[in-house]
Computed example of a mutant assay.
Amino acid sequence: MSTPRERLAAVGNQIPPLIALIVLWMLLWGEFSWLNLLVGLSVGLIVTVAFYLVPVQLSGRLHPWHTLVFFVRLLRDIVRASVDVAWLAVKPGLTTSNAILAIELRTRSDLILTWTAVATSIVPGSIVVDIDRESSTLFLHVLNMHSARDIERFRRQVLDTERRIVRGFGSREDVERMRGVRPENRLSARRAARADRPLKKGLS
């Protein structure tokens, strides 16, 4: 049986999707009015209550500087990729070589997985075609892949995007995982350090 705190957290986790649905409804109508706002709120409530949505646990952490770095870098990647794709469209004698790549992320957060998929898809030249939630793997269709070096460079770009997202608003556990330290290892290290303190005092 869930505690009041867990129920409150579950309700709080539904607020961001509800707001997103309201904004999407307003964008579809193309204008703001109180009627559209009320109808959007009603539709959002029906969707979030009547249909099962996998709960996304918010990290509760926001680092302003790293978040700004993520969005600035994302904007730069979009501009640069737009120029590259435009050049491919008019390049004479173009030989296309596309690829489907499977890239496993280093975190296991649904929130980070979603943000990374969206951030990667809105950059021209690549799009997510499938996601394996269990292994946090993105399957992407990527343009202009001619060698193993191109594939590795794109893979690093996706992982760098994930790293910037985690540093901006990922949980502390995600940050630790990105550093190569699992939360359980960190906890074990703390316990071992506490156990060594009495021994060191006795030897001194």
Results as ranks from 00 to 15, higher is better:
residue 5 R to F: 15
residue 9 A to E: 14
residue 11 V to E: 14
residue 12 G to A: 10
residue 13 N to Y: 15
residue 13 N to L: 08
residue 18 L to G: 13
residue 19 I to Y: 03
residue 21 L to H: 08
residue 21 L to K: 08
residue 21 L to R: 08
residue 23 V to T: 12
residue 23 V to P: 07
residue 25 W to N: 05
residue 25 W to M: 05
residue 29 W to N: 15
residue 30 G to Y: 03
residue 30 G to E: 06
residue 30 G to C: 05
residue 31 E to A: 08
residue 31 E to T: 11
residue 33 S to V: 10
residue 34 W to K: 00
residue 34 W to R: 01
residue 36 N to K: 09
residue 36 N to D: 06
residue 37 L to G: 04
residue 39 V to I: 13
residue 41 L to K: 00
residue 41 L to I: 06
residue 44 G to P: 04
residue 46 I to K: 00
residue 50 A to P: 00
residue 51 F to S: 07
residue 53 L to K: 14
residue 54 V to G: 02
residue 57 Q to F: 11
residue 57 Q to I: 11
residue 61 R to L: 13
residue 62 L to F: 15
residue 63 H to V: 11
residue 67 T to Y: 02
residue 68 L to R: 07
residue 71 F to D: 09
residue 73 R to M: 11
residue 73 R to C: 10
residue 75 L to T: 12
residue 76 R to Q: 07
residue 76 R to Y: 03
residue 76 R to S: 05
residue 76 R to K: 03
residue 77 D to H: 10
residue 79 V to F: 11
residue 80 R to Q: 14
residue 81 A to D: 00
residue 83 V to K: 04
residue 83 V to G: 02
residue 87 W to I: 12
residue 90 V to P: 00
residue 94 L to M: 10
residue 95 T to E: 05
residue 95 T to R: 12
residue 97 S to F: 00
residue 98 N to G: 05
residue 101 L to N: 01
residue 103 I to L: 03
residue 105 L to E: 03
residue 105 L to T: 05
residue 107 T to G: 06
residue 108 R to E: 09
residue 112 I to M: 13
residue 112 I to Q: 10
residue 114 T to V: 11
residue 114 T to A: 14
residue 115 W to E: 14
residue 118 V to Y: 08
residue 119 A to I: 08
residue 128 V to E: 04
residue 129 V to K: 06
residue 129 V to I: 12
residue 130 D to F: 01
residue 131 I to Y: 08
residue 131 I to P: 07
residue 131 I to H: 10
residue 133 R to N: 08
residue 134 E to L: 12
residue 135 S to Q: 14
residue 136 S to H: 15
residue 139 F to D: 06
residue 140 L to A: 05
residue 141 H to D: 06
residue 141 H to E: 04
residue 142 V to L: 07
residue 143 L to N: 09
residue 143 L to I: 06
residue 144 N to R: 15
residue 147 S to H: 06
residue 152 E to S: 09
residue 156 R to W: 02
residue 158 V to M: 05
residue 159 L to A: 12
residue 160 D to A: 15
residue 160 D to P: 00
residue 162 E to T: 12
residue 163 R to L: 10
residue 163 R to D: 14
residue 164 R to A: 12
residue 165 I to V: 09
residue 166 V to K: 11
residue 170 G to W: 12
residue 173 E to F: 12
residue 173 E to V: 10
residue 176 E to V: 03
residue 177 R to L: 12
residue 178 M to Q: 10
residue 178 M to W: 02
residue 179 R to H: 15
residue 179 R to I: 00
residue 180 G to C: 01
residue 181 V to W: 01
residue 182 R to P: 03
residue 183 P to D: 05
residue 186 R to K: 10
residue 190 R to H: 07
residue 194 R to H: 09
residue 195 A to T: 07
residue 196 D to A: 15
residue 198 P to N: 14
residue 198 P to D: 14
residue 201 K to Y: 13
residue 204 S to T: 09
